[in-house]
Structure formats: C-alpha cells, structure tokens
Design a protein around this nucleic acid. Sequence first.
DNA 1: CCGCGATGTTTAAACGTTTAAACAAAACTA
DNA 2: TAGTTTTGTTTAAACGTTTAAACATCGCGG
Lengths: 337, 337
Amino acid sequence: MIKRTSLKDIARKVGVSIALVSYVLNNQKEGRIGKEIAQKIRDAAAALNYRPNQIAKSLKTNKTHTIGLIVADISNPFSSTLARIIEDEADKQGYTVIFGSSDENELKSGKLIDALLNRQVDGLIIIPPAGSEDQIIQLQRQEVPFVLVDRYFPEIDTNRVILDNYSSTYEAVQHLVAGNCKKIGMITYDASLFHLQQRKKGYLAGIAQSKINHNEDLLKEVNIRNDQMEIETAIRELLSLHEPIDALLFSTNSLAISGLRYIRSLSIKVPEDLAIIGFDETEIFDFFYAPLSYIRQPLREMGQMAINILLDDINKMKRTREVVMPAQLVIRKSTMK
Amino acid sequence: MIKRTSLKDIARKVGVSIALVSYVLNNQKEGRIGKEIAQKIRDAAAALNYRPNQIAKSLKTNKTHTIGLIVADISNPFSSTLARIIEDEADKQGYTVIFGSSDENELKSGKLIDALLNRQVDGLIIIPPAGSEDQIIQLQRQEVPFVLVDRYFPEIDTNRVILDNYSSTYEAVQHLVAGNCKKIGMITYDASLFHLQQRKKGYLAGIAQSKINHNEDLLKEVNIRNDQMEIETAIRELLSLHEPIDALLFSTNSLAISGLRYIRSLSIKVPEDLAIIGFDETEIFDFFYAPLSYIRQPLREMGQMAINILLDDINKMKRTREVVMPAQLVIRKSTMK
DNA sequence: CCGCGATGTTTAAACGTTTAAACAAAACTA
DNA sequence: TAGTTTTGTTTAAACGTTTAAACATCGCGG
C-alpha cells in the first residue's frame, strides 16, 4: 500500500505548520485564518488526495466512531437482517460497524468482546448467548457503553431492547384456542436464556387460562445446538400421543425452520391436522405450502432503538434504559383451520 | 467508559520504564529480561486488567489487522453466508472484519471504500456493484490490497475469486436438454456485470449447441432493483407464448426467489409443466414444493481463497491472482420430469 | 585489575493527529 | 505614540504504543 499523505506532507508542500493545516481542514478557528492560505491548503490537500488517518485521530480523541455488534451467527437471517438495520442507522449517525458471531458460545462471545474492545469500539450492541452474564457484568464494571438486544438477563440492570416475550406466546395460544385447537404443543430450547423462559411462560399461561386442559406435557425442550434429529423426535412424540397435538408453536425461527423441514415430509396436513405458528420473520415461512403464521419482532424499530440508546450512552446523555417492544401476530394460512 | 490502563500505568506501578513493560508483555528480548521483574510486570498487568490499545499499536505499526468487506446487502443470504465464512477465516488468521452494504449502488460503494480506508483497514474484500470500475482502478493505483469476489471486471487486472460462470449455465442447459426440455427460458438482470453476461453466454451457447431450436427470444432481462412485478411479467410472457417454455433458469438467487414466489401462485406444475433451476444455495429452495435444482457456488472455498489471496497481497507475497471455481449443479425434484 | 561480553534496563524518537498556549504583526484606541 | 485588541500562525505536548540505540552493571579471562 502506497504511503498515504499526512498533514505533514501538506504542511511541507504549502510551507506552513501542521497545526494550521489541521485547523483549515477541520474548519476550525473560523475567520481567523487567511483566505488565500486556507485555499492553498485545501488545494494541496486535494492535489495530494489527502484522507485523514482515523487511527491517529482516534488515538487523540479517544473516539473511534465504530460500534461492535455481536450476534449469534451473522449467516442467520434474524442476525443479518438486524445487522443490516444497525448498519444503516449507524451510518446515518456517522458510525461504522464491526461484527462477530458468537455461535451461542460464551467463550467465543468473551473473545469477541475482548477483540472489539481492543479495537477501541465506542460501544457494543450484543445479542448475548446463554452463560455470558459475567461478561456483561464485566462490561458494566468497566463502564463500557452497550445495549443488549433480543436476549437479556433480568437480574442485571443494563440497557436493553427486547420483545414482550411473555405476551407474544400468550397471544399466540389465545389465537390457536380461538381457532378451536384443543391440544397445543410447543417446541423450545432447553437454554436458560430468559427471553425463552418468558416465551415458555406465556405459552403455559395461555394454556392455563383457557378451558382446554392438557393432562400431558406438550412442551418439548431441545438442545440449542439445533440438532435436526432431536427436533424430529420431539415432533414425532407430540404427534404420536394417544390423542396427538393439533397445534404447534415454535419459540424461534431456527426451530420453526427445522420443524417445518420435518413436517413437510410427513403425511399430515397443515393446518387441517396441525396448526403451526413460527417465530420471527423469514422468507421460508412464505414458501411452506401453508404460509406460516408467525410472531413478528419489529426488527427495524428495535435496531433503531438500540443505536439510539447506545449513542445516548456513549454521549453520557441518559442512564440505563429498558425498552420493551410489542410482538405482532401475523396470521396466515397455517392457522386457518 | 472508565480509563483503560496503559503501559504507562503498569510502568509506574512496578517502577520501571514503559519500554521494559512493552518488551515483557510482547515476549521480546527473550532471555535478557530479569525473571523477577518480568513476573512483577505480568502480575501488575493482570492486576490492572491491561489490554493493549490496538489503535496506538496500529498507529505505530501501520497495521490494523482489520479487513473491510463490501457486499451488496448483508441481509441477503448469499452475502451473509459469505460474510460468516470470511469472518471465520479472518479470525483464524487474527483479523477482524468491518463490513458495509453497497445496495448495488456505486455511490454508496465509493463512500464505503472511503470510510473503510480511512479506518485504515489492511485490505478489502469486495463484491463490486455495476459501475464501480473507477473505484477499483483507484484502489489499484493506491496499491490498496484487495480481492474481488463473485463479480469482477475482466478488463481490470485484479485479484479475484470467481465462479466459472459460463460453464455453470451451459451445463445447466445441458442437464435440462437431457431431461427432454424443449423450450428453455432464462431470467437475468439487465446489468452490465460481467459475471451475469457470462452466465447469459453460457445459457445461449448451451441452447445453440443443442438440437433444440428457439425461434423466439426466451431470455428476459429485468432491472437489478429486483422489482417483483417486473419479474412476474417476464415469467407470464414466457408462459403465455403460443408454445410456452417448459424449463426456466434463473441467474441469481434473488431472481429465483422472486420467481418462485410467483410460480407457486400459478396453476402450473413443477417440474411436469415447467422445470426450474435456481442459482446459489438458499434454504428457500428446499421449501419449494418441488425442491429446487440449483447451481451451487462453493462459498466456503471461495471465502477461504479470498482471505488467503488478500493476506498474501497484504504481506506482499504474491502478485495478482485470478482463481476460477467450478460450479456444481445440484439436481433435485424441480428438474425431474 | 583492566577490558570485554553478557545481561538488564532506560532513553528518546516516531507514528498522525488535536489543541491549548504562545507568539508576531497589524490595526485600532485613546 | 504607547497600549490594547484583533488577526494570523506556530510551538509543543499529548494520545499509547514500538524499537533502535544508549547506558549501566556485572562477572570473568587473562
């Protein structure tokens, strides 16, 4: 890479001090700088194709105008959609995004946080994996500005932008009950992640307050590694009960996708034999033979909110904030018996 | 954000010079440093939770160990899958990735290149939009290490990792012909992008060398803004010919997805009435009622190759390299008449 | 017991910026 | 005309590192 031109080069060329060049190029000391010399400096800068070295600038100002984004897996549509929104919003505010995928692994997440902090990001947006509480507490202790999105730890008082997870599944169950479903199953991960626990509770509460009465356990929890076989087994069990389930609720998009993969290979009919509700938005839901009803997170609003809260934090404008977003139940073919 | 501890803090605490701390913490001057003092320094570093300031390091070494990635849209699965692979490979080599989405817009791409260079990335991996030739030439002139992936400009001699685009569609046509298709349509973008031109040529050559004889033009070119209506119109026209097409080839995944959206709303049957071949891999192809045959790019290999070439370039190991990857035709239900 | 190599540590400049403070000269003010 | 203000520009330190070079101390051979 060719040596880039620095303030020094311009200063030398024009025959002035480095400071003056800096002032001119940053439009500082308005009015106090000679018109002709300012023009000369600008011309020289253009001629030499000067671009400021952000690294040096950052070292001085202690601001990188870069934010770190930690998602579970950037190749997952939930993550990449959110990433895109965050990229756009950050860009509007003059920030750049560095990202990393934690793979639901708290070790990787720790490494990632370290790496991003070493690069002196001004703040972090994190979708934390299970077991990363300590890392979050650490961040808090170091007073690093950050926001949690989607996932969170209720016992830690942090900025966060989350869904009203409890209501989301509660309402989904109500919708199914209204549609005359009698046995509603749910598949979720066995992780400790609080947002999943809330989704579970919403489901259980929904069942409890309805007149329908499950005498069996229709809630299946599978490992978060998302093993296709495990999910298939869970569904098979729910369908081979003496009285099989007639509705199924998934707590995440990856679970829904894996589940649908299996269900479409079965002879049962959706929604006649089995109504289905997925979570999050994905084009795949459109392509299932009975387009899926799903619980939608308002991703754009969440991303915008996350950036705003983060920037406020970086600029010490506001203190810890929690924003709870409403989920939207999108009703389509898969729940129209 | 709390003030982070610097070499100076450690030096002060232990009562030695900054230089010594630096040497110890970087394991330099092996053997020449007193064992006890080295241990003291390490202890102090640990106690103060020291993390090196990469910004300062970068300023000195002129290396950021950061690479910039410019894709069309990080929320598109092609981009995000590639991004994930590049992230992993970069990480293995001690690099971090900054990304940006160009939205097929050469202005945005230009802005993005600027922003990334200002942040002193060590190199770039770019999927260039149409019309960005000048930017690429500029990069070359500035001797910025970079690699183009997927898209490229044949007249500009750059590093690139690309698909054997011509053969990919040529072979797809051959497969359709072998499957007894008589009228094979293709939908592509009207963009000047060379890789798309090659895919088009491959298709045309495939048709030409087969015995089947199209007397009409069965190639439709739509705008790259990917307007759903425009794609539907194109398909409708191909299907309402006096003798309608019996096979259809899409030149990208986004075209295929939009196309499938429409086709599934039609009464025609895939593959009986219409065989279909998509491009690139996406889970959506699995969920179409007749799982789609598709032309697969070896993304992992391409990503790895891109990183390797880029790092070689950064380290001035090798000169310009072009790597052409073979496409793989994955045959499934949608082409089995 | 002088000189030298080995061992251990410090000094100081540099990377490219920013910015308070100092300086110099010109232009007012009284 | 001396003093003050304004205008224009420079000086120099700082941000947190790296690293060549200098320096200091020691042990040892001759």
